[in-house]
Design a protein around this nucleic acid. Structure first.
Length: 570
RNA sequence: CGGGCCGUGGCGCAGUCUGGUAGCGCGCUUGACUGGGGGUCAAGAGGUCGUGAGUUCGAGUCUCACCGGCCCGACCA
């Protein structure tokens, strides 16, 4: 490609509405443009890189025996009703009607559709199968943000495995796990694989692949010692034990005027430190009132609660409902003597004595509370959100908690969808059994953005060779000079001939403009061809990642550049 | 969905409080000088000021409604 005839709309300033680095750089460097919130058009440069991401994913899928499909993105309501997800996914699914008034959905994932096609599998002899596709996914995100990191329309490679039994699924899952690791390596960033909550996907095991980044929105707890890592929606930790005093024979009410928070009570004379307090939250779970108890210095993880309580709908109670139920406002709530209510307590409260909690009377608390003696706990669950520095559940060393981008998610689904669609095969003994399924997703655009988040500097993007839109940029410093022009043209032809992706910057621009643009876009290598170099019989090769410059004798330039580029492809 | 901020040439912004001929920088076009890190000079093109209604002699500016975008939170297979 000759730059003079290419559409590469670079911008001198950061776009005003971008925050995330990948968002700013992909816009500025001319890789994409926004159409509306959560929907981006890829420009030719962006599409080249996106196709390289896709090619890597496809290669790795083929390596594990994946077979590529292409499914419709518009689905009939009926198939989503069979799995129950027409209702359970709620507003996140785009829905529409055709001219006959039939209800349709834009696919946000394809478990139902692949399971539907899986019904044509009849015998164990046909197994295992791994089916995949690249397809646009539509999700009506409440808040699209951060450029390509959270959008409403994107391309996903989703694959589905079909096996006879759990052991088969485990194998397919492991194959995907390894394939994904290879993909990220080739993308040029390090990931951490974590245990995750499966959300409404169903199934019991899922693993997320996370890239550490401040632009992310998922928190991960990881142990540097033993390798334990989990999404905070799922992570556990061990706490130092707390020594309790003997306490009182029975709870004693005391006045706490103006105390509204854990902190207020901790600061008050005769109060209690947060780890000696019981925090009481009120939730409406399927219209039932439930009290949730945690230690005062602990935070509820709603996802943990959702994952452990079978419920259709859950929300915190409104303030009026709380007052009506317990007779007091938040700040003075407690579970003592409320045995008629369903009380769930976090494990960290088990066996605690001499605690302080609200008296269900504004401005009053109870001290000397013995959890086992005074509170009728119906269920003990791990509900606490893990915090930085707490002990690793495997090796007790301190955990670190940090922000990440979820770059892929793989699930062991089990038989949820094969049962819903009636996908069965006969096993060796002639019995009909439901297919055991897995599903494995990776978003292309998000991974493109992740590559940028992980590979950039103050001058722009630093593409790894595998993802770069062009591997080499040949910069002709003075295109009007015949010798320069011809040398550039010849090098461009030779490198292209050798199979490299190369762009020739033949624009009538100042050298500075060309250098800046090339750095902003982030070509891994750039060759400078100018009068000075020609006089000495050399080109200059500049590496984007560290700015290292090498002088190449003109007669050996092609050979050296080709070798360098091929070396870095993987 | 709650809270906050913002819509003015392609991009970044000023002008809005206090109503009176729509501006600046960059980019773009043409020409000249230039040519190894966003150069200089000259001459140009480009805007229904998000949309609609209202107040006013007069609205980018004031009022109301709507639309769109960004950020925080809630939510997120």
């Amino acid at each position: 490609m000759r730059w003079s005839s290419a559409f590469i709309p670079t911008l001198r300033d950061d776009p005003a509405d971008a925050e995330a680095i990948s968002h700013k750089l992909l816009i500025r460097a001319g890789f994409m443009r926004q159409l509306m919130a959560g929907h981006y058009s890829m420009t030719p440069l962006g599409f080249r890189s996106l196709r390289k991401v896709e090619a890597i994913v496809r290669e790795e899928m083929e390596k594990i025996g994946g077979q590529e499909f292409r499914l419709p993105s518009m689905h009939p309501k009926e198939i989503w009703e069979k799995s129950g997800r027409w209702d359970s996914v709620g507003e996140e699914m785009f829905r529409l009607q055709d001219r006959k008034g039939a209800d349709l959905a834009l696919g946000m994932t394809h478990e139902e559709i692949f399971a539907f096609h899986g019904t044509e599998l009849r015998s164990y002899k046909a197994l295992p199968q791994i089916w995949y596709q690249f397809q646009a996914k539509f999700r009506d995100e409440a808040r699209p943000k951060s450029g390509l990191l959270r959008v409403r329309e994107f391309t996903m490679k989703d694959s589905y495995s079909f096996d006879l039994d759990q052991a088969g699924l485990d194998h397919a899952f492991d194959q995907h796990f390894e394939a994904y690791r290879r993909m990220f390596k080739r993308f040029g960033f390090e990931i951490v694989a974590v245990e995750a909550s499966s959300g409404v996907m169903g199934g019991n095991t899922s693993i997320e692949f996370m890239l550490r980044s401040d632009a992310g929105e998922d928190w991960v707890a990881a142990c540097g010692q033993c390798g334990y890592a989990a999404n905070v929606e799922k992570a556990e930790s061990v706490l130092p034990s707390v020594e309790d005093g003997a306490g009182l024979a029975e709870p004693e009410k005391f006045s706490t005027p103006g105390v509204k928070t854990i902190d207020d009570l901790a600061k008050m004379d005769g109060g209690a430190s947060p780890d000696r307090q019981i925090k009481t939250l009120v939730y409406k779970i399927d219209d039932k009132d439930v009290l949730i108890l945690l230690r005062g210095d602990h935070q509820l993880s709603e996802q943990k609660l959702i994952d452990q309580v079978q419920s259709e709908a859950m929300r915190p109670a409104e303030i009026g409902e709380v007052k009506k139920l317990l007779g007091a406002l938040p700040g003075s709530l407690g579970a003592v003597g409320r045995g008629e209510l369903f009380v769930i307590a976090d494990e960290a409260l088990r066996g605690r004595k001499d605690m302080v909690t609200g008296a269900n009377e504004d401005g009053f608390h109870l001290r000397g509370v013995d959890v086992d003696r005074d509170i009728d706990v119906k269920g003990w669950l791990d509900l606490r959100e893990v915090k930085d520095g707490e002990g690793c559940p495997q090796c007790q060393k301190p955990l670190s908690v940090y922000k990440t981008i979820e770059v892929a998610h793989i699930f062991k689904l089990g038989t949820k969808y094969s049962e819903a669609m009636g996908a069965k095969v006969q096993n060796e003994s002639g019995e009909s059994v439901h297919l055991v399924m897995g599903s494995y997703g990776i978003g292309l655009e998000r991974n493109l953005a992740a590559v940028v988040e992980a590979n950039h500097d103050e001058n722009g993007i630093c593409w790894p060779m595998n993802i770069a839109p062009y591997e080499v940029c040949v910069t002709v410093v003075k295109p009007k000079d015949v010798a320069c022009h011809e040398a550039g043209e010849r090098l461009y032809q030779d490198l292209s001939q050798a199979g490299l992706d190369v762009i020739l910057d033949d624009r009538a621009e100042r050298p500075g403009v060309k250098f800046k643009d090339a750095e902003l876009i982030g070509f891994p290598y750039r060759v400078t061809i100018g009068p000075k170099g020609l006089e000495q019989g050399v080109f200059e090769l500049v590496r984007r990642s560290d700015g290292e410059k090498t002088e190449l004798k003109i007669e050996h330039a092609v050979e050296t550049i080709v070798e360098t580029v091929l070396d870095e492809r993987s």
